[in-house]
Design a protein around this nucleic acid. Structure first.
Length: 419
RNA sequence: ACGCACCAAUUGGAAAUGC
């Protein structure tokens, strides 16, 4: 049974859920009964795939058979809820597991803390950290990294650094992930000097400055127009025996494209390929995006076709580059057409709808823009603050202040925070 | 018999939308 469990877990980790299910059938045929480990592996697999319904029906199936869920099972389920942004449900299960006499451990707390941080609820996250400490549980980098990232994502980068300094003085070990998260926060705020400072601090604390750290720096400097720094960073990497990978190259390509230098962008693409890095869907999409923005639809379409011939499949983001370009040049009907095709292929999301909203607004068809909000709800894709603010901005521009205020209230009513 | 071990749970980098 261990061998089967191990194989099933492996399939789940690779996202091969049907393969995992076949193995379960096979083991049952051989007279082996799935146990808690088997179920937990499957539950974890479905949670990672975002298929929470299946995960919970497996959970009910196992409890129905009299197999008791354990700490691994609950943590996997809570992880799934957190990843789907269902923190209320995650909190509920976190409390309910005690009814099964299962006490949350470090991993469970780490998962919950990360979930709260992802939602920007730093207060709850730190409350849980304190609760962990009260219970004598030992936090580690799986705890600290999300907290650092959470503080950064709500614009409290300096507090994140203070937090890290406190941890350091209390002799808690931080790793590359904690530092790279902080560096990313600094870069997003344009505090490039501080990002470099963090790098220096890593060296002084014997933490390896790895490829991810360098990629964050390269991305940060380039996106803030500091092109000169690129060569010295690349040289430094080289001196440390690091070579850029496709993520690093894609970041550089994107930066040149966004700066309007498509020649250099394609130049880097060639270098990347000659270095043996394989362009992926993101690499293609950043180029398609820049080509669309430059109005070169023909080349963008060629690249898109080329993608289909390679191993990358265009996704929502790829198509939304075309969608955005269509609306910007006023081809709203064509955009709507493309969007309905996307919708059929499950490639529509809140951003693709927002692009349509902006398109209608731009054509002075604000009523139709507002109707999109209803369509979104029907498609089970909830409007976000960008959806609303696009229309609110349009009402304001036209002097319809009362309409703008009305929509503002609707937005607040839906529990959306203005940004 | 009891332990123990074995199989299952959590962390970082690049792309699209409004102002």
């Amino acid at each position: 049974i261990h061998h089967y469990n191990s194989l099933i877990s492996g399939h789940c980790k690779l996202g091969k859920l049907s393969g995992a299910n076949n193995l379960v059938k096979e083991m049952i045929d051989k007279g082996l009964e799935p146990n808690v480990v088997t179920y937990t592996s499957l539950i974890s697999g479905y949670c990672k795939a975002g298929e929470l319904k299946t995960a919970f029906s497996l959970y009910h199936e196992m409890t129905g058979k009299g197999i008791s869920p354990n700490i691994y099972t609950f943590t996997a389920l809570i992880y799934g809820l957190c990843r789907s942004n269902m923190m209320a449900e995650a909190c509920k299960l976190f409390d309910q597991m005690k009814e099964w006499n299962v006490i949350p451990n470090e991993v469970t707390y780490n998962v919950m803390i990360e979930g709260h941080c992802r939602k920007g609820d730093i207060v709850k996250a730190f409350e849980l950290l304190n609760k962990m400490l009260e219970k004598g549980l030992v936090p580690d980098t799986y705890t600290y990294r999300p907290l650092i990232g959470g503080l950064c994502s709500v614009g409290r980068v300096s507090e994140a650094k203070d937090f890290m300094d406190d941890l350091h003085s209390d002799r808690h070990k931080l790793n590359e992930m904690c530092y790279s998260t902080l560096m990313r926060g600094y870069c997003k705020e344009g505090r490039l000097k501080d990002a470099l400072g963090a790098c220096t601090e890593m060296v002084s604390r014997s933490i390896d400055v790895d490829l991810v750290c360098y990629t964050i720096l390269i991305n940060g400097f380039l996106k803030h127009g500091e092109t000169k720094k690129l060569l010295s960073l690349l040289k430094e990497m080289h001196d440390h025996g690091l070579r850029p990978d496709n993520v690093a190259y894609t970041s550089i390509i994107d930066a040149f494209g966004k700066a309007g230098d498509l020649g250099k962008a394609f130049g880097v693409w060639d270098i990347m390929v000659s270095e043996g890095c394989i362009p992926n869907v993101v690499t293609y999409t950043v180029l398609i995006n820049s080509l669309c923005k430059a109005g070169d639809i023909h080349s963008a379409e060629l690249l898109c076709k080329e993608m289909l011939g390679s191993n990358s499949i265009p996704n929502s983001m790829t198509y939304s580059c075309f969608l955005d370009q269509l609306t910007k040049v006023g081809h709203i009907e064509k955009a709507v057409e493309l969007h309905s095709t996307m919708l059929e292929s499950s490639l529509a999301n809140v951003v693709t709808y927002n692009i349509l909203i902006r398109g209608f607004c731009q054509m002075n068809r604000t009523e139709e823009a507002a109707e999109i909000l209803t369509q979104m709800v029907e498609a089970n894709i909830l409007p976000d603050s960008v959806s609303y603010s696009t229309i609110i901005f349009e009402y304001c521009r036209r002097g319809s202040l009362s309409e703008a205020m009305k929509l503002w209230d609707v937005m607040l009513d839906k529990g959306l925070y203005p940004d």
